[in-house]
């Protein structure tokens, strides 16, 4: 296979390479990539794409169904649901990325240390992991919200405090296998420091499973965020967030289905897209960009 790349073609730009790389993936991954790509694009450029402000009231257009002027209709105060969904998605994705990918490296590192050293170090870290996982999570978030006040800050503090533990448990179990591999023995035989062995030689091997799990975690966290906002612990009105939009639309579910359903569908599309990518990752079918 590598003989085919003996004469490499002119190197395209970094973005071009990424696109080409995405395009060479199996079909489900490609579909997932496109879905997530559209949503991320929409979220990033929300202020440019949204036809209205997220809190623009229009009492001449209350509870209108989807139309060209309002692609997702309007809510009971005449706010454009499409614009609110875009702004909500923007906040949601940013928060979800934060609460998923901040705990991930912390967890992987803790798990790698526990697995590499074993013994007492492992015992201490493993018990901390157990306690963290056993702790009633919603109660913890409510407690933190009570301290820092309502809003997304509470979630952004509370979720990472708990979420690292699952990554740590995952990384620890993989590290137990990995440390018996001859190439990890070789890091000792070559006289590397343990720090170097863990960070540069072991952790890259542990990232795969954690990254796959993180795609599930992304969806779970998005739903969690929407759920907490629905409970009033997250984003505070009037600003938009998918959970609050859905919660507010609930009262009009029977006569204005679009307020809850269409933002809900956006959640579903994001979940399906991320799920497809994660599935491709775990099948190990991703095709590299190198040889």
């Amino acid at each position: 296979m590598s003989t085919a790349t003996l004469t490499p073609p002119a190197r395209p730009s970094a973005a071009g390479r990424l696109l080409r790389r995405v395009w060479r993936q199996p079909l489900p991954v490609r579909i997932g990539g496109v879905l997530v790509g559209i949503l991320v694009f929409a979220a990033v450029f929300a202020p440019l794409l949204a036809p209205y402000g997220q809190n623009d009231l229009d009492f001449n257009a209350q509870l209108q169904g989807p139309s060209l002027a309002h692609p997702m209709g309007t809510d009971d105060t005449g706010r454009d649901v499409f614009s609110r969904t875009l702004y909500g998605l923007r906040i949601d994705l940013a928060v979800v990325l934060f609460i998923t990918y901040v705990p991930l490296p912390i967890g992987v590192l803790m798990g790698a240390i526990a697995g590499y050293f074993g013994g007492k170090v492992d015992l201490v870290i493993s018990r901390i992991i157990d306690i963290t996982i056993a702790f009633p999570f919603i109660v913890l978030v409510i407690a933190i919200v009570a301290i820092v006040g309502p809003g997304l800050t509470g979630i952004m503090i509370g979720v990472p405090i708990v979420a690292w533990a699952l990554y740590a448990r995952l990384a620890r179990s993989e590290m137990l296998v990995l440390r018996e591999q001859p190439f990890m023995l070789a890091t000792t035989a070559l006289g590397y420091t343990r720090r170097r062995a863990i960070l540069r030689h072991a952790v890259p091997n542990l990232m795969r499973s954690s990254l796959i799990y993180s795609t599930v975690d992304l969806v779970v966290n998005l739903l969690l965020l929407a759920g907490l906002s629905y409970l009033g612990l997250g984003m505070q009105p009037p600003n938009a967030e998918l959970g609050t939009i859905i919660a507010e639309g609930q009262a009009n579910l029977l006569n204005a289905w679009w307020i809850t359903t269409l933002p809900g569908l956006v959640l579903v599309v994001f979940g399906v897209g991320v799920g497809l990518i994660g599935d491709g990752l775990s099948d190990g079918e991703l095709r590299g960009g190198g040889a």
Binding site: P182, F183, A189, L190
Partner: peptide, 21 residues
């Protein structure tokens, strides 16, 4: 560590798992 790094080298039976994939 210094001894392992400079004075001795070691190669193993299984070349398939002795390099980091």
């Amino acid at each position: 560590r210094d001894f392992r790094a400079h004075d001795v080298g070691m190669i193993y039976q299984d070349p398939f798992s002795s390099l980091n994939p």
